[in-house]
Amino acid sequence: MPGVGDAPIPPGGVQKLLNNNVVVAVDADGRERVLMGRGIGFQLKHEGRVDPAKVEKTFVLDQATDTAHAQKLLTDAPYALVQAVLRAVDEAERELGRDLGRRLPLAVIDHVNYVIERLDQGIRIPGTSMPELRILHPDESRAAEHMAASIAASLDRELPPEEGVFLTMHLLNATRDEPNGTAALLFRRVQHVVRTVETGLGVALDTDSPDFARFILHVRFLLQRLVNRAMLTSGDSSFFEFAKHRYPRAFGIAQAVKAYVLAATGSTLTDEEVLYLTVHVERLATSLGRAETAGGPDAPVL
């Protein structure tokens, strides 16, 4: 697995030149380290040595396949781009207050290099705003936006707005260690619920509204309660029956969500969970001004 850090140059290692800014050193244990610094390759070529003071970053390479990929990437990518990404990753680690792992810098270098190559060819990679990300993962989303702005400023060029989304996903891959891709699975299910509601209402939701944020967080906690087998229950069905008849459209959408959850997880939502879904959907419809006679300003408040 490749890693990045500030490890010292391996003493007595065998070094080879990749380009003027990148050389490879093999330590006594046979592990390859890619050393990066402006002009260190030029120095090695002419003086046969590398000045440790000029080494800016060190990538530790442990697997043959990763070694070949990393060496090619760091050789081909413009050094200014590599520096911009490494600087942005360092800033993100400080902002988030944690180590972002070994693979992230190379993954972001690879991604940004690909994006810029496509932009130079007049090709823009399709993207989406994914507003759910901002609500479910606000810290990573904010750090990713800052990373995109930092990289763009360092390279003195404009990057597409959706780069914040792509970089957020990279950060989540680096910071979320739940088994079986739990975070990604939860996000996909939240997205599916949102699409189910939008289809039922026949309109795109206002992703900047407080009601949308409340709804997203409610769905996340609902899905987490489902996994933890701690769904809401109540012995009083009167409010459920009231909502069912008072807000039939919202109730029908909540039933569609219930059917999706059953198909996706094998678990059946309780009446209490369906009730709260109904209330949230009705609030969304009301805030959009598209509620029918079943809704209106008297929609229940949570």
Rank of each mutant, 00 (worst) to 15 (best):
V55C: 09
S267F: 04
P52I: 03
A144W: 05
E158C: 11
D206V: 07
V261G: 05
L17V: 06
R195H: 09
L18M: 10
Q255P: 08
L86P: 10
M130Y: 14
A254S: 10
V219N: 04
L185I: 07
V194R: 11
E272G: 11
E241F: 00
T175D: 14
V219S: 13
D120C: 06
L106Q: 15
M130F: 13
P105W: 05
A184S: 11
I109D: 04
R118H: 06
L205V: 02
F212H: 04
D110Q: 10
A174K: 04
L171H: 15
Q15R: 12
Q63A: 15
Q43R: 11
D139T: 07
K45I: 02
E198C: 08
V112W: 01
G39T: 08
V89N: 14
V82W: 04
H111D: 03
F242I: 14
D271T: 01
V281H: 00
T75S: 04
T75N: 13
R290M: 04
V219M: 13
N228L: 09
D156A: 15
F221N: 12
A213H: 00
G252Y: 00
D62C: 03
L106W: 02
V89A: 10
D139E: 15
R49G: 02
A84M: 07
S129A: 11
V227Q: 15
Q83Y: 00
A254V: 06
A28T: 07
T270A: 06
P8G: 06
K16L: 12
R189Y: 07
T75H: 05
L81Y: 12
T75M: 02
E158H: 11
T293E: 04
V24Q: 09
F187Q: 12
H170I: 01
N228A: 06
A144C: 12
V60M: 04
V34L: 14
T128G: 15
E47V: 07
A291W: 00
F166T: 14
